[in-house]
């Protein structure tokens, strides 16, 4: 299996596919001694994206992860658009193989084109309910992605069209629900995960241009 993982890792790191969202993890397979988890993923979330992240797994009675991840959309200008998230993901409830976990994360996002540079701070809150075995898992998840405050800085091109165009902080600016399914296959130190679902605006009437998300991910648990 290891020999198959290497090409997959190379593929993900090369960013030849795209996207990234929350850490998808097999909680049943996570031992107390595995303190560090790194992950890469790629897929589609608002755009074609790829990314990587790190989670710290402290020695607590209830499993939780403290994480930081970054995702970048594809394109020929690196870091003009990006998303960085940090926060906590924790197990809320466990009954036999059923587990309910939640996450609350802070988000920083940046977007730039010829018209405007947007800097956004937001949050992502979500729940995942799944059936977890040591070798595999399947779960349903729902997240609310809120763009709470966004700074607009317009270019000279934008001011040519509309000289009075506003620059500054707008609160709030967006909210989207993401809901779908996730599943994974686990080895002792590795999770290969797949998640996919739908995105709808907070008014439940509109959707982004790409109203779906999908992510292929790979996690390595270090320790134990």
């Amino acid at each position: 299996m290891q020999k198959h993982l290497l090409p997959l890792l190379a593929l993900l790191l090369a960013g030849t596919t795209a996207s990234l969202n929350a850490q998808v993890l097999n909680w049943q397979n996570l031992s107390r001694e595995q303190r560090h988890i790194i992950h890469v993923n790629a897929g589609m979330e608002y755009a074609l994206i790829y990314g990587a992240g790190y989670n710290f797994h402290p020695a607590t009675r209830r499993p939780l992860l403290l994480g930081l991840d970054i995702s970048l959309p594809v394109g020929n200008r690196a870091f003009d658009d990006l998303k960085v998230r940090t926060g906590i993901q924790l197990e809320l409830y466990k009954m036999n193989k059923l587990r309910l976990s939640g996450q609350i994360k802070g988000i920083y996002r940046r977007y730039e084109n010829a018209i405007v540079q947007l800097d956004n701070f937001g949050s992502e809150t979500g729940l995942t309910l799944g059936y977890y075995r040591r070798r595999w898992f399947v779960a349903a998840d729902g997240n609310f992605d809120k763009a709470i405050v966004t700074h607009f800085k317009h270019s000279a091109t934008a001011r040519e069209d509309y000289p009075d165009i506003a620059n500054g902080w707008f609160v709030p600016t967006a909210g989207n629900f993401l809901y779908g399914l996730q599943a994974g296959f686990s080895l002792k130190h590795t999770d290969i995960t797949l998640k996919a679902g739908k995105i709808v605006s907070q008014d439940f009437r509109h959707a982004p241009m790409i109203p779906y998300y999908a992510q292929l991910g790979c996690s390595w648990k270090i320790g134990g």
Binding site: Y46, Y111, L118, A147, T173, A174, G175, N176, I210
Partner: peptide, 9 residues
């Protein structure tokens, strides 16, 4: 064209 969807709705 599409990445700003997550910040503006």
């Amino acid at each position: 064209a599409i990445y700003a969807d997550q910040m503006l709705s």
